[in-house]
Amino acid sequence: MAEQVFYEDVEEGLSIPDLIKNPSKRQLVKWAAASGDFNELHYDKDLATSLGFPDVILHGRLKAAFLGQLITDWIGDRGNLRKLSCSYRRNDLPGQELTCRGRVTRKYVQNAEHIVECEIWTENPQGEQTTPGTAIVVLPSRG
C-alpha cells in the first residue's frame, strides 16, 4: 500500500491515483452473491440483449464500491471516508477496463477535522465518465 497521505499533502486540483479495474462476468456473479442483487440483467446475456443491451452490464453498486476502493486506497488506514455519492449515468460492460479517477475540489478545517472534498468518477475505454460522483474524507494532519 502507498504511504499515508496527510491533509498538508493535498491541494485543490490534485489528482487521486487511478484505480484500474477489469471486471469479469465472474466478478459480477460474485457481487450478486455478496450483495443479494440477483437481477438477471447482470448475468443473463439473453435477457440483457432482449432488453437492448449489448451484453450483461455492471451493477451500479459494484461501481460505487470500486469508487469506495479508489478512496480508501488513497486515504490509507488513518484517513476516514465520510460520504460517497454517485449516479449510474452510463452502462459498463464486463471485459472492458474501467478506470476509477478522482480530483480534490476543496479542503478545509471544520470542528478540528481536516476535511477534503473530491469529485470522483469511473471512466470507460472511450474516455466517457460513466459513474460521476463526489466523496468527502477526513485526513490526518501533520500539525
Binding site: A34, S35, G36, D37, A65, G68, L81, L84
Partner: peptide, 12 residues
C-alpha cells in the same frame, strides 16, 4: 468492512 459492504446492504 470495506465501503462496498454498505453498498451491498438494503438490496435483495
Amino acid at each position: 468492512a470495506p465501503p462496498g459492504f454498505l453498498m451491498t446492504l438494503a438490496v435483495s
